[in-house]
Design a protein around this nucleic acid. Structure first.
Lengths: 191, 191
DNA sequence: ACCCCAAAACTAAGACCTATAGGTAATTGC
DNA sequence: GCAATTACCTATAGGTCTTAGTTTTGGGGT
């Protein structure tokens, strides 16, 4: 009965890796236990439930994405920051599909507030600071950017862009370019 | 053992209703069987598996949304069509959350091709016809619109816009308005 | 009316997954 | 080196999915 050295952290990380390998919906406590060569009930000292495991995976993913996003926008502004941020989300969705899916699980209000979610919101606002928008317009713009980033990654992953040309990569670059142009003209249009 | 009158159609519809009531992830064959006052194995004459049930729900949702979208864009063009289409997706996501979630399940290529998915793509293209775009630009634009529509609905549903003002409704209108303006200027910018 | 038979629904059973309760062994701190 | 904590275990119960094989039902042909 040599100890496996489980912690909430390690269990959640194993769950996240598993999600990327086999898909989030197939992540089970049983499979995680198998990975650690441990019996299922042992996991309950570290996660409260199967749903809790998924929430922990979501927290990991949100934090990892926020860290990458922070690096990407550091030292950049305007279009450069916008493009860099966009690439972070798309790349993360491609490289860590299970983790990315986890970011869509519903967290209770308290957990969500303590997550890296607010960091994402503030990063969007940081990027938008270059565009001279009013308070409300900045909110609208942040919601638009969030929608485009998430929507594109989600649709690309679910195969919505398959079987059509040109390659999604081209659309992505074009879209980021267009968003920049749109934001530039926003304050002008809505004065 | 009075017959319950099950069909693939009725089972799938019950699953869809259930998804809206209790959430897609909690839709189980057991629960559907309970609704029909039938034993679980009886369902296997009508759906191949639990995953198949979810796929059937997705097909229903895609078709219902496509029908609503077709009605919305009929007799409209340009900005009016764009706004109407946007409202269809957002309203559907609000009114039928379980069905909407089902539209994100991965369908195998064959099923996807036979689904209403392509109708959605062609409807986006129909709306874009008013904007005088090249073939490739139309594709980019369709992907952008799809991303914004899906992304906004998805984020709003997962609580991403909660706890902040102004109301998402205002952002939505502003965003649709801005997309129209963007598309108008697209062909000019990319000549 | 009756019979027949196709298909609608059932029972039985095995494999997994989640979760709780309560026990044993190993590490930590004194 | 001992006590106490805690990491991990066994046992168990209940739920879901799926397949195999069986019974029942109701409509169509004679």
């Amino acid at each position: 009965m040599a100890r496996a050295g489980l912690t909430t952290e390690r269990v959640a990380r194993a769950g996240a890796d598993l999600a990327d390998e086999i898909g989030l919906e197939r992540v089970t406590l049983s499979e995680v236990a198998r990975r650690f060569e441990v019996k299922v009930p042992s996991l309950y000292s570290h996660v409260r439930s199967s749903d809790d495991l998924r929430a922990q995976i979501a927290l990991i993913a949100l934090q990892e994405m926020a860290d990458l996003a922070a690096s990407a926008v550091a030292g950049r502004s305007g279009q450069q920051a916008l493009v860099a941020l966009g690439h972070v989300y798309r790349d993360y969705g491609r490289d860590f599909p299970g983790r990315y899916d986890a970011t869509q699980v519903r967290l209770d209000a308290e957990t969500a507030a303590a997550s890296a979610g607010p960091r994402h919101a503030s990063m969007l606002r940081a990027v938008l600071r270059a565009y001279d928008l009013s308070e409300d317009e900045q909110t609208h713009a942040a919601r638009l950017l969030g929608s485009v980033f998430h929507g594109f990654v989600s649709l690309e992953r679910s195969g919505g862009f398959a079987h059509s040309t040109p390659a999604p990569q081209q659309s992505w670059e074009h879209i980021l370019d267009s968003l920049d142009a749109m934001l530039r003209s926003w304050s002008a249009r809505h004065d």
